[in-house]
Simulated scan of single mutants.
Amino acid sequence: MPMNRGQFVISMDFELYWGLRDICPISHYLGHSAKEREIIPKVLNLFEDSGIHATWATVGLMFFESKEQMLQGLPSRLPAYQDVNLSPYPHLTSDGVGTDEQTDSSHYGLSLIRRIERTRYQRVSTHTFSHYYCLEAGQDSAEFQADLRAAVQIAKSQGIQLESIVFPRNQVNPAYLPLLLPEGVRAYRGNPEHWLYKRGYSTGDSLLRRALRLMDTYLNLSGFHSYTLESPKRGEPVNLPASHFLRSYSGKLALLEPLRRRRILRGMTYAARNKQVYHLWCHPYNLVDERGSNLKLLEEIVAHYKKLQSLYGMESRNMEELSDQILGAVPARERQIMLGPMEWSKEANA
């Protein structure tokens, strides 16, 4: 689908400790990553002041006000991962989760969700209810559907309509995509087609794959992954693939920082010149480091976007706005076929 201008998209995977629970102890999170709560207001101010439209894909378990409420809002079916460590539910029902956000800021995030919701140009979307892994062995589509419905329900109870999804660890399961539209989810963040990224991330990824991804952060091994918009397949939401991951700052690789910065800015420039989409993503905790280097890099990225806006008319769009742009460009009859009768009826009556 041809575009008149390049599009700059930012999506944030907002998960607190729920997204790190299976790979690091809570002590590590509290000692470092928990400072993301201080970073988020700074990022929101930067985005609002600079006109940056962003999507914040948020784990559903963070929406609750208390543990009692959380236990009452669990999905009707829980994931049966072969690796039981992947499931957060034993952690939830033990003493691993406190009673509310005041006593446990690592698991509850409603105050920050409200802050995001109040900030201009920002949208709250879903990162699934439980940080659900769609490609891990043992789980199935019925369990994912129950998880998704629980996420939609808790967001709705807080007055938030979920319209897009980011799959945890970027594990996009094509078989699950038709389950999204009936729940009102019209867009998802897909993966680049390159073999390094196509199937997302997993703790079982080979050392070679991980090493090449790290190298690709600094050297353009796989391409810019910018793209033109495409209409969705029938019965599936709009795919807005990621272009680049804003990885955490590494002091050990500090000498390579100019290469990392150049890699991102060149990708943005390429997209702006060629009227394509550049989709940057990260977790808020990726912006945490003692020197503030990654937050400074984000500020430079935003400043470069403003330059590209002036030179080439590049626009900032969140995932929801860009999916609306795609669907709005499709003739009504074709859109009805793509969305299916149920979702088309919702749109027609909106």
Results as ranks from 00 to 15, higher is better:
86 L>V: 07
70 M>T: 02
62 M>G: 00
51 G>L: 09
51 G>W: 06
61 L>H: 05
74 L>M: 12
88 P>V: 08
93 T>Y: 14
76 S>F: 10
52 I>E: 11
58 T>H: 06
59 V>D: 00
74 L>P: 06
56 W>N: 05
61 L>Y: 06
52 I>A: 10
55 T>V: 01
54 A>I: 05
58 T>C: 00
66 S>T: 15
88 P>T: 10
69 Q>L: 10
61 L>M: 13
87 S>C: 12
93 T>Q: 15
79 P>T: 14
60 G>L: 02
71 L>Y: 04
56 W>R: 01
67 K>A: 00
84 V>F: 11
55 T>G: 04
60 G>S: 07
54 A>E: 04
60 G>R: 04
53 H>L: 02
85 N>G: 11
82 Q>M: 13
51 G>I: 06
82 Q>C: 11
62 M>N: 02
67 K>C: 03
51 G>C: 11
52 I>D: 11
71 L>E: 11
58 T>Q: 06
52 I>C: 10
55 T>S: 14
92 L>S: 11
53 H>W: 13
77 R>K: 15
80 A>V: 13
76 S>P: 04
79 P>H: 07
77 R>P: 06
60 G>V: 05
55 T>Q: 02
92 L>A: 08
76 S>W: 12
74 L>K: 07
74 L>I: 15
88 P>E: 01
56 W>F: 12
92 L>T: 01
68 E>F: 02
88 P>C: 08
90 P>C: 10
56 W>L: 03
71 L>A: 09
61 L>G: 07
